[in-house]
């Protein structure tokens, strides 16, 4: 699944998504305005979401998460990659390749 998000692709938030944090330990919720699909994310997922700003690649995001997490679990990289891929599949994020000229 990591192959779906290339190493130089920057990840941004879909502007059609509304996001809200519920509390420091409660994570957050995302609503896709067009599809009406609603998604809950845990506190780590919310931390990852808050780091997505259109300027970071998957590697950048992973480095940020490792920096913020105490006692990094061995499967963290895989979990973060999986999470990003799920966001892609649900059309909650945008992928911008370095060849794309922003409009």
């Amino acid at each position: 699944m990591g192959a779906a998000v290339g190493p130089h692709v920057k990840i941004g938030r879909n502007p059609k998504v509304v996001a809200r944090e519920l509390g420091r330990r409660d994570g957050g919720v995302l609503l896709h305005l067009e599809s009406g699909q609603y998604h809950g994310v845990n506190s780590v997922g919310w931390m990852i979401w808050s780091l997505i700003d259109g300027t970071k690649t998957l590697s950048d995001l992973l480095a940020e998460v490792i920096h913020r997490v105490d006692d990094v679990p061995p499967q963290l990289a895989e979990d973060v990659t999986q999470f990003i891929c799920e966001l892609c599949e649900r059309n909650l994020v945008t992928l911008v390749s370095p060849d794309t000229v922003p409009s």
Binding site: R20, E21, L22, V29, L31
Partner: peptide, 17 residues
Amino acid sequence: TDEDRRRCFGGIADLAG
């Protein structure tokens, strides 16, 4: 409208939290 759905969703998320 997107604007009003945003407003509403933000409100009920804040409420639930």
